[in-house]
């Protein structure tokens, strides 16, 4: 009986190890990092705030209710902005463009970067030469200058911002992916797939991409924060989102003219940008440590 029980126990242990896939193990490692989990929780909260902004915001973010920069009251805990709109409502709605740009631009950037990097690394030769020079060129451009230029060509708007940021920040991803693909190409299982006649597209999609997913996810999650700052900077400089859309960068720009009289206008949106970027960065650090324990920073 005792022997049989032991077997049962061992069997369940074996089963559990089986179930502990690589992703599950990564999740366990991630979960043990308190700061990363805190970051994730904050990100979820901000996302909920963005989605349910119409329910959460006490007032219409574009409605003028009071006089310029009026101080906080119990109904308006953050006070009013430079033309008398409820600042709390504007800050709540401001999460929307920040997250849309942060997440969608990162996605666009990652997709372009993976495609270019995988093509350069996999095909080598002149394809690599051309794509690598393209990557070099993009990396040498002063980023914010290029963004401002492109935004004024396309006409500033939310989707312009998403596209220009996505289209200009992929070089880093491409570089990392290219290097990874180059080393993957030397592995036996890729040689084997080629030997049995698998098409290039299929090898890239089924064998290369899944293997570089880890580093790409790490780069992507570490990249969101920087992109949120870029969106805010573009809007702050007048070539991102346009008034009267509530965007954190725009509220900052509005508050800039009234630093002396009404410093609160510029203060709150900046706190939100800072906390959101911090949350994404902590989350990204956690993802990196979870997916690639060798690369741990500490």
């Amino acid at each position: 009986m005792a022997v049989a029980q032991l077997d049962q126990k061992q069997l369940s242990l074996v089963k559990e190890t089986e179930r502990r896939s690589e992703w599950l193990q990564a999740w366990r490692r991630f979960r043990s990092n308190k700061l990363a989990v805190a970051g994730l929780i904050f990100i979820v909260l901000i996302c909920l705030m963005a989605i349910f902004a119409p329910l959460l915001a006490p007032f219409d973010p574009t409605e003028i209710i009071a006089k310029r920069g009026a101080p906080a009251t119990s109904e308006h805990p953050l006070g009013f902005d430079d033309i008398g709109r409820d600042l709390l409502s504007r800050v709540i709605y401001g999460a929307r463009p920040a997250l849309i740009v942060g997440l969608v631009s990162t996605f666009v950037s990652v997709v372009i970067g993976v495609l270019v990097g995988a093509a350069a690394g996999y095909f080598g030769g002149w394809v690599d030469a051309v794509l690598s020079r393209l990557i070099d060129t993009l990396m040498a451009f002063p980023l914010l200058a290029l963004l401002l230029l492109l935004a004024s060509v396309l006409g500033p708007s939310l989707w312009t911002t998403v596209i220009v940021i996505g289209a200009t920040t992929w070089a880093r991803f491409a570089r990392v992916v290219r290097a990874d693909v180059l080393s993957l190409k030397q592995t036996d299982f890729i040689t084997a797939s080629r030997a049995v006649g698998v098409r290039n597209g299929r090898i890239i999609w089924r064998h290369i991409v899944p293997n570089i997913l880890g580093p790409v996810i790490v780069l992507a999650s570490l990249g969101v924060g920087g992109i949120i700052i870029l969106e805010a900077a573009l809007s702050f400089l007048g070539l991102g989102l346009q008034r009267p859309t509530p965007s954190w960068g725009l509220i900052l720009a509005d508050g800039r003219a009234w630093l002396r009289q009404h410093p609160h206008i510029a203060t709150y949106p900046g706190i939100m940008i800072f906390l959101t970027v911090l949350a994404f960065n902590l989350f990204g650090d956690g993802v990196r440590d979870a997916l690639d324990p060798r690369q741990r920073a500490d």
Binding site: G225, I229, A232, A233, L252, L259, T267, F274
Partner: peptide, 26 residues
């Protein structure tokens, strides 16, 4: 140092600048 650099990376420089103006200049 780690806390300092984590904060430094997440701090948008334009907001940091504005806060600097409010506190140290105004």
């Amino acid at each position: 140092t780690t806390i300092g650099s984590t904060i430094g990376v997440a701090l948008p420089n334009f907001w940091f600048g504005l806060m600097g103006i409010i506190v140290f200049a105004l």
